[in-house]
Design a protein around this nucleic acid. Structure first.
Length: 495
RNA sequence: GGUCCUUUGGCCGAGUGGCUAGGCAAAGCUCUGCAAAAGCUUCUACAGCAGUUCGAAUCUGCUAGGGACCUCCA
């Protein structure tokens, strides 16, 4: 059973074979830190976090590189004026690096709340100006770029004569040329598809560096080419990012690497699909972006309530990463309830006591459980189908709950099967999906107090003093603590 | 205009040509002092039309919605 990954380049699922046995090099285009990341950005990083974790689960040694774009990202190829950081800085009277610092920290906070692992290397564009200049020089030397007045352009039409430029998104150059609008202010470019590798800076520009072409700053696409080569080599296994990056950013990356090194950088290109709101893509420019903070606090006009980071993550995991996912209050609510039920079953089965028996084993039930557990890996190996893994988990939830309610005798299930449920659930929920308990009770005093109240309530119930027992339960409920009478007289509670 | 993708039950969503995914909601029942959970049962959907096939949600064509990219964006 081997891992299959959908490759945008070939438009089909391919059996994954790493370049170096046992090792995986993975590059993911990270955030541009001039504003808060929204939930759509988070979706991509969550998807690749799970891919990273699963590759590690498969015992690969993974070097996961995800960049921080903190320089040179233009408003548009036509806009040769301020870069994004300078623009925002003037607006807020801050140093560009102050902006970068603020939003980088914010990004990391969000990633931590969503319990994603940090990448192996998180390089910044500003930290790799030299590498980008070197690469630009090499591309000029190889004849695929030209300088005009301090700005260096990539010659797309020349490149396309030798290698198909639109290979990633299956576009022909003629079609691209036809579709390109007539952009003003770029008469100096030779071809209308040419893009900047290096951009001349105006004197008042706050972010600029010396180069062979004068003071300037790097074009957007060159940073990923330079940094992926530096940390993963000229050829590596996986390159990922949002689907919106495929047609421009990744297409240009491939062209740059080909022009510089005569090789396409990655074997497999992976693209995560968009998070939508009312069917339209969530994006910074459209202004329909949800900020993670708004979701975690419920402070947003479209939200009825707050949702925990884990609910958001679970919500995303119920959809395949290559499908669009529509964001709505109702869908989040469904996820919240589903996750709660799943997690409670997980917590119960993790603690249940079981001993090895050989008699009275329900073979059919055992087989059913084992089949569902085996599906986990099969689903993940099929292009990381997290939704299917969760569906299989949910098939086991009624069985687990029936054991809890003594509707199923635990002794009819083999001890080894129970152990396997425990292992697989822990492995998938915590290690691969990176989910955490929603309500972690950290205050031990609170725990003691509630347990005391539970004792009093049990006594009251035994005396049929339902007035007292109901009072305890109702008053606690008002404080947000829910008591549950379990079968057999036990009581549990949750926040 | 060009290049693609997509359309699944009340809602969200997975689907390898044959075996009713799953979640949420709803209804009924069981359990229960009550409540909440939980369990069981019910709701058998694949935009439309035509075709290929013994057999199509799945493949092909056409039609109609929706969306993305082609311009900064995960």
């Amino acid at each position: 059973m081997s891992l299959k990954i959908y490759n945008t380049l070939t438009r089909e699922k391919e059996v994954f074979t790493p370049i170096n046995k046992g090792y995986v090099g993975m590059y993911v285009c990270g955030p541009t830190v001039y504003s808060d990341v929204h939930l759509g950005n988070c979706r991509t990083f969550i998807s690749f976090d799970i891919i990273y974790r699963y590759l590690k689960y498969l015992d690969y040694k993974v070097r996961y590189v995800r960049n921080i774009t903190d320089a040179g990202h233009l408003e548009g190829d036509r806009d040769l004026g301020d870069d994004k950081f300078t623009k925002k800085a003037k607006l807020e009277n801050l140093e560009p690096m102050e902006i970068v610092q603020k939003y980088t920290l914010g990004f990391h906070d969000v990633m931590r709340m969503l319990n994603t692992l940090p990448p192996s290397i998180e390089p910044t564009a500003t930290g790799h100006i030299t590498e980008q200049i070197k690469m630009t020089e090499q591309i000029i030397t190889n004849g695929y770029a030209y300088e005009v007045g301090g700005t260096v352009y990539f010659d797309v039409e020349k490149y396309d004569k030798e290698k198909p430029y639109g290979i990633l998104t299956n576009r022909k150059l003629e079609d691209l040329l036809e579709g390109t609008r007539d952009l003003g202010g770029q008469e100096e470019k030779r071809g209308r598809l040419d893009f900047a590798l290096w951009i001349k800076a105006k004197p008042e520009h706050l972010m600029q560096w010396p180069s062979p072409w004068g003071m300037g700053f790097p074009g957007w696409h060159i940073e990923c080419s330079a940094m992926s080569e530096k940390y993963l080599g000229k050829k590596f296994d996986l390159h990922g990012g949002g689907m919106d990056l495929a047609a421009t950013h990744h297409t240009n990356e491939i062209a740059q690497n080909q022009a510089c090194n005569n090789t396409s950088p990655a074997n497999i290109w992976m693209h995560t699909n968009m998070l939508t709101v009312n069917g339209a893509r969530m994006s910074k420019s459209a202004g329909n972006g949800f900020l993670p903070g708004e979701l975690f606090t419920g402070n947003h006009p479209l939200l009825d309530k707050a949702y925990s980071p884990m609910v958001v993550k679970f919500f995303m995991l119920q959809t395949h990463y290559r499908s669009t996912l529509d964001f709505s209050n109702e869908a989040l609510q469904a996820s919240e309830k589903g996750l709660k039920r799943l997690w409670e079953a997980y917590e119960f089965i993790g603690k249940v006591e079981h001993v090895e028996r050989v008699e009275n084993i329900d073979a059919e039930l055992n087989d059913k459980i084992l089949a569902a557990l085996n599906e986990f890996d099969t689903s993940m190996n099929d292009d990381f189908n997290t939704a299917k893994v969760l569906a299989n988990m949910f098939e086991l939830v009624p069985i687990i709950n029936s054991i809890k309610d003594k509707l199923i005798d635990i002794n009819t299930i083999q001890s080894s099967t129970i152990t396997l449920i425990q292992q697989k659930f822990k492995c998938y929920l915590e290690d691969i999906f990176g989910l955490l308990p929603i309500n972690e009770i950290t205050n031990s005093k609170l725990n003691e107090v509630v347990n005391l109240l539970i004792e009093i309530r049990k006594e009251a119930k035994n005396k049929k003093d339902f007035a007292t027992s109901d009072k305890i339960r109702n008053q606690l409920a008002e404080m947000g603590i829910n008591l549950k009478d379990e079968k057999g007289g036990e009581m549990t509670w949750s926040l």
